[in-house]
Protein backbone atom coordinates (compact mmCIF):
# COMPACT_ATOMS: atom_id res chain seq x y z
CA UNK A 1 0.00 0.00 0.00
CA UNK A 2 1.36 3.34 -1.00
CA UNK A 3 1.47 6.30 1.35
CA UNK A 4 1.54 9.46 -0.74
CA UNK A 5 3.42 12.54 0.33
CA UNK A 6 5.27 15.52 -1.06
CA UNK A 7 8.67 17.14 -0.90
CA UNK A 8 8.83 20.82 -1.81
CA UNK A 9 12.15 22.46 -2.58
CA UNK A 10 12.02 25.89 -0.95
CA UNK A 11 15.30 26.82 -2.61
CA UNK A 12 13.72 26.62 -6.05
CA UNK A 13 10.26 27.88 -5.14
CA UNK A 14 9.66 31.53 -5.97
CA UNK A 15 6.19 31.71 -4.45
CA UNK A 16 4.52 32.48 -7.78
CA UNK A 17 1.25 30.82 -6.73
CA UNK A 18 0.89 28.84 -9.93
CA UNK A 19 0.14 25.86 -7.68
CA UNK A 20 -2.74 27.81 -6.17
CA UNK A 21 -4.17 28.83 -9.53
CA UNK A 22 -3.74 25.39 -11.10
CA UNK A 23 -5.58 23.80 -8.20
CA UNK A 24 -8.41 26.28 -8.59
CA UNK A 25 -8.95 25.53 -12.25
CA UNK A 26 -8.27 21.80 -12.07
CA UNK A 27 -10.69 21.30 -9.20
CA UNK A 28 -13.09 24.17 -9.89
CA UNK A 29 -12.45 25.59 -6.41
CA UNK A 30 -15.13 28.24 -5.78
CA UNK A 31 -14.38 31.96 -5.83
CA UNK A 32 -13.14 33.22 -2.50
CA UNK A 33 -11.48 29.92 -1.54
CA UNK A 34 -8.21 28.16 -2.21
CA UNK A 35 -7.15 24.60 -1.42
CA UNK A 36 -3.47 25.53 -1.35
CA UNK A 37 -1.67 28.75 -0.60
CA UNK A 38 1.75 30.35 -0.19
CA UNK A 39 3.31 31.34 3.11
CA UNK A 40 6.51 33.39 3.12
CA UNK A 41 8.46 33.24 6.36
CA UNK A 42 11.01 36.05 6.73
CA UNK A 43 13.54 36.07 9.54
CA UNK A 44 16.34 38.45 10.42
CA UNK A 45 17.00 42.16 10.23
CA UNK A 46 17.47 44.01 6.94
CA UNK A 47 19.65 43.37 5.00
CA UNK A 48 20.47 40.05 6.65
CA UNK A 49 17.17 38.38 5.96
CA UNK A 50 16.33 34.76 5.39
CA UNK A 51 13.23 33.77 3.44
CA UNK A 52 11.47 30.48 3.26
CA UNK A 53 8.60 30.24 0.81
CA UNK A 54 6.19 27.41 1.50
CA UNK A 55 3.48 26.11 -0.79
CA UNK A 56 1.01 24.82 1.81
CA UNK A 57 -2.06 22.57 1.70
CA UNK A 58 -3.58 19.64 3.58
CA UNK A 59 -0.70 17.56 4.90
CA UNK A 60 -2.54 14.26 4.49
CA UNK A 61 -1.28 13.35 7.96
CA UNK A 62 -0.69 9.84 9.22
CA UNK A 63 -2.53 10.75 12.43
CA UNK A 64 -5.70 12.42 11.28
CA UNK A 65 -7.64 14.47 13.84
CA UNK A 66 -9.98 15.48 11.02
CA UNK A 67 -10.95 11.86 10.43
CA UNK A 68 -11.11 11.01 14.11
CA UNK A 69 -13.51 13.84 14.90
CA UNK A 70 -15.84 13.40 11.92
CA UNK A 71 -19.26 12.34 13.19
CA UNK A 72 -20.44 10.88 9.88
CA UNK A 73 -17.39 9.21 8.46
CA UNK A 74 -17.27 11.69 5.58
CA UNK A 75 -13.64 12.50 6.38
CA UNK A 76 -11.76 9.34 5.64
CA UNK A 77 -8.46 7.85 4.63
CA UNK A 78 -8.67 6.74 1.01
CA UNK A 79 -7.51 3.25 0.12
CA UNK A 80 -5.19 4.60 -2.56
CA UNK A 81 -2.09 6.22 -1.12
CA UNK A 82 -3.68 6.83 2.29
CA UNK A 83 -4.88 10.18 0.97
CA UNK A 84 -7.26 12.02 3.31
CA UNK A 85 -10.55 12.78 1.56
CA UNK A 86 -14.01 14.08 2.31
CA UNK A 87 -17.10 12.32 0.95
CA UNK A 88 -19.23 15.30 -0.07
CA UNK A 89 -22.48 13.39 0.18
CA UNK A 90 -21.83 12.17 3.71
CA UNK A 91 -20.53 15.52 5.02
CA UNK A 92 -23.08 17.53 7.07
CA UNK A 93 -20.89 20.67 7.21
CA UNK A 94 -20.49 20.59 11.00
CA UNK A 95 -16.99 22.07 10.77
CA UNK A 96 -15.51 19.81 13.47
CA UNK A 97 -12.73 18.91 11.04
CA UNK A 98 -12.04 22.59 10.30
CA UNK A 99 -11.47 23.14 14.01
CA UNK A 100 -9.34 20.03 14.43
CA UNK A 101 -6.88 20.74 11.60
CA UNK A 102 -3.69 22.41 12.87
CA UNK A 103 -2.93 23.60 9.32
CA UNK A 104 -6.23 25.35 8.69
CA UNK A 105 -6.38 23.39 5.47
CA UNK A 106 -10.15 23.03 5.21
CA UNK A 107 -13.01 25.34 4.34
CA UNK A 108 -16.72 24.92 3.84
CA UNK A 109 -17.59 24.77 0.17
CA UNK A 110 -20.55 26.99 -0.84
CA UNK A 111 -22.43 23.74 -1.46
CA UNK A 112 -22.20 22.94 2.24
CA UNK A 113 -19.46 20.37 2.63
CA UNK A 114 -15.94 20.52 4.02
CA UNK A 115 -13.47 20.87 1.19
CA UNK A 116 -9.69 20.68 0.89
CA UNK A 117 -6.76 19.34 -1.10
CA UNK A 118 -7.23 15.81 -2.42
CA UNK A 119 -3.67 15.41 -3.71
CA UNK A 120 -5.60 15.43 -7.01
CA UNK A 121 -6.40 11.77 -6.44
CA UNK A 122 -8.51 11.79 -9.63
CA UNK A 123 -5.34 12.58 -11.56
CA UNK A 124 -3.06 10.35 -9.52
CA UNK A 125 -5.34 7.38 -10.16
CA UNK A 126 -4.89 8.07 -13.88
CA UNK A 127 -1.13 8.02 -13.44
CA UNK A 128 -0.73 11.80 -13.50
CA UNK A 129 0.80 14.11 -10.93
CA UNK A 130 -1.30 16.47 -8.82
CA UNK A 131 -2.11 19.68 -10.75
CA UNK A 132 0.07 21.85 -8.49
CA UNK A 133 3.08 19.61 -9.04
CA UNK A 134 2.62 19.29 -12.78
CA UNK A 135 2.18 23.03 -13.39
CA UNK A 136 5.02 24.37 -11.25
CA UNK A 137 7.30 26.44 -13.50
CA UNK A 138 10.24 25.98 -11.13
CA UNK A 139 9.81 22.19 -10.81
CA UNK A 140 10.10 22.60 -7.04
CA UNK A 141 7.44 20.08 -6.05
CA UNK A 142 7.77 16.32 -5.86
CA UNK A 143 5.00 13.81 -5.23
CA UNK A 144 5.22 10.10 -4.56
CA UNK A 145 5.13 7.16 -2.21
CA UNK A 146 6.83 7.76 1.12
CA UNK A 147 6.80 4.03 1.83
CA UNK A 148 8.92 3.35 -1.24
CA UNK A 149 12.50 4.11 -0.26
CA UNK A 150 13.42 4.44 -3.93
CA UNK A 151 10.78 7.00 -4.83
CA UNK A 152 12.05 10.46 -5.73
CA UNK A 153 10.30 11.99 -2.69
CA UNK A 154 11.79 9.45 -0.31
CA UNK A 155 15.25 9.94 -1.72
CA UNK A 156 14.98 13.72 -1.50
CA UNK A 157 13.74 13.59 2.08
CA UNK A 158 16.53 11.19 2.97
CA UNK A 159 19.28 13.22 1.28
CA UNK A 160 18.26 16.85 1.83
CA UNK A 161 17.78 18.83 4.99
CA UNK A 162 14.04 19.30 5.47
CA UNK A 163 11.24 19.92 7.89
CA UNK A 164 7.50 19.31 7.99
CA UNK A 165 5.07 21.92 9.33
CA UNK A 166 4.06 21.93 12.99
CA UNK A 167 5.49 18.51 13.86
CA UNK A 168 4.62 19.34 17.46
CA UNK A 169 0.94 18.98 16.59
CA UNK A 170 1.60 15.27 16.52
CA UNK A 171 -0.26 14.60 13.32
CA UNK A 172 2.71 13.18 11.41
CA UNK A 173 2.27 15.40 8.34
CA UNK A 174 3.42 14.04 4.97
CA UNK A 175 4.64 17.21 3.27
CA UNK A 176 8.31 17.98 3.74
CA UNK A 177 10.00 21.29 2.93
CA UNK A 178 13.52 20.92 1.60
CA UNK A 179 15.76 23.72 2.81
Amino acid sequence: MARFGMAIDTKKCVGCMDCVVACKTENNVPEGHNRDWIVTVANGKFPNVNLEIQSQRCNHCDNTPCVACCPTGASHVHEVGAVVLVDHNMCIGCKACLASCPYDARFVHPDGYADKCTFCIHRVEEGKLPACVSVCPTHCMYFGDLDDANSEVSRLIASRKNHPLLPEAGTSPRIFYLI
Binding site: D9, K11, K12, V14, G15, C16, A42, F46, P47, V49, N50, L51, I53, P137, T138, H139, C140
Partner: peptide, 26 residues
Amino acid sequence: VQEFANAVANDASIIVVDPRFSVAAS
Protein backbone atom coordinates in the same frame (compact mmCIF):
# COMPACT_ATOMS: atom_id res chain seq x y z
CA VAL B 1 11.77 32.16 -14.25
CA GLN B 2 12.03 28.53 -15.32
CA GLU B 3 15.65 29.10 -16.28
CA PHE B 4 16.26 31.03 -13.05
CA ALA B 5 15.01 28.06 -11.00
CA ASN B 6 17.35 25.81 -12.99
CA ALA B 7 20.26 28.16 -12.35
CA VAL B 8 19.48 28.08 -8.62
CA ALA B 9 19.24 24.29 -8.70
CA ASN B 10 22.58 24.16 -10.54
CA ASP B 11 24.17 26.19 -7.74
CA ALA B 12 24.91 29.17 -9.96
CA SER B 13 26.22 32.12 -7.97
CA ILE B 14 23.40 34.62 -7.76
CA ILE B 15 24.20 38.27 -7.06
CA VAL B 16 21.22 40.53 -6.41
CA VAL B 17 21.26 44.31 -6.25
CA ASP B 18 18.00 45.74 -4.99
CA PRO B 19 16.81 48.19 -2.33
CA ARG B 20 14.25 45.52 -1.49
CA PHE B 21 15.03 41.99 -0.35
CA SER B 22 13.26 40.40 -3.31
CA VAL B 23 12.48 36.72 -3.73
CA ALA B 24 15.52 36.56 -6.01
CA ALA B 25 17.61 38.13 -3.23
CA SER B 26 16.66 35.22 -1.00
